[in-house]
């Protein structure tokens, strides 16, 4: 207690000294100092705002088991290490793509986020989407048919998110696991997804949930849905996370996060 009192005394003494010191300075100098302080903070804020506008974030989404985490580590380390299990938390890191590590010169690193596909963890997506420069929707091309409806529902939700529509965040539908011969083609997958979303459009526009509000509707009314109708660009690509064939994905990333 005594120590505390001593401290208090000391502090009040310091305050007094500071007060005296300030009084000695002419007031216009004081104003100038204040103005400079305000100015620098403003500039800092502006810089930050500017930085955010040129985001380097790429978000990996897709159903659980589609291979997002494998792809994340392929991008980062060029290896799948000892395999993966279902993610309980997002993986996120800022790095230079593994395939670019040999290149010379200064390369801008990419911030990649892998958001788990478990439906309970999907609310996490909203944290990352607003700052995304691009999103990748990973689809399991091997086990596609049984997952077609859930995948379409997830994709529908993604495409109607306010942040995606307003900022026109480009989307890549990445058909993963094409190393296996029984994998479906990206054309087929795209067609099926479009068909499913077309049906969802009818039922979703009818039910607008109180919480999962789809702020925007998709496509042109009266026409069958196609990804071309989206306000943001939607492209498709093949990949195999397991064998490391992810060049098309890297192309997409570098298209939206310039090196």
């Amino acid at each position: 207690m005594q120590e505390l009192d001593q401290w208090k005394e000391h502090i009040s003494h310091l305050l007094n000294v500071a007060n005296d010191y300030i009084r000695e300075i002419p007031s216009d100098q004081l104003y100038a100092a204040a103005a400079i302080a305000v100015f620098t903070t403003l500039i800092l804020l502006l810089l930050r705002f500017f930085k955010r506008a040129k985001s380097n974030t790429i978000v990996l989404t897709g159903l659980s088991g589609s291979g997002k985490t494998v792809i994340f580590y392929q991008l980062k380390d060029g290896s799948t290490h000892q395999g993966t299990v279902t993610s309980m938390e997002p993986n996120e890191d800022t790095f230079i793509l593994h395939s670019e590590t040999l290149k010379k010169g200064k390369i801008k690193p990419v911030h990649i986020v892998d958001v788990p596909g478990h439906s309970r963890l999907r609310p996490k997506l909203d944290e990352y989407l607003p700052q995304a420069a691009g999103t990748v929707f990973v689809v399991d091309a091997l086990d596609f048919l049984p997952n077609c409806r859930p995948a379409s529902e997830y994709l529908y939700d993604l495409l109607t998110k306010g942040s995606v529509v307003r900022k026109k965040i480009p989307l890549l539908i990445l058909c993963n696991k094409t190393d296996k011969v029984t994998a479906h083609t990206k054309e087929f997958i795209c067609r099926q997804l479009e068909k499913e979303i077309d049906k969802l459009r009818a039922s979703r526009s009818a039910v607008s949930d109180a919480d999962v509000t789809n702020e925007f509707t998709l496509g042109v009314p009266g026409e069958p849905f196609s990804f071309k109708q989206c306000s943001n660009t939607v492209t498709t690509a093949d990949a195999s996370g397991l064998t490391g064939e992810i060049s098309q994905l890297e192309e997409f990333i570098r298209q939206h996060v310039k090196p």
């Binding site: 088991g65 000892q82 395999g83 299990v85 309980m88 997002p90 993986n91 892998d114």
Partner: peptide, 27 residues
Amino acid sequence: TRGGLILWSCKELGNALKGSPIDTLIR
């Protein structure tokens, strides 16, 4: 890791697990 990357597994035990108990446990 909570992110889902396997860091270590016992190679010596090495038995292939039937089904996917770990994923089911997590999910």
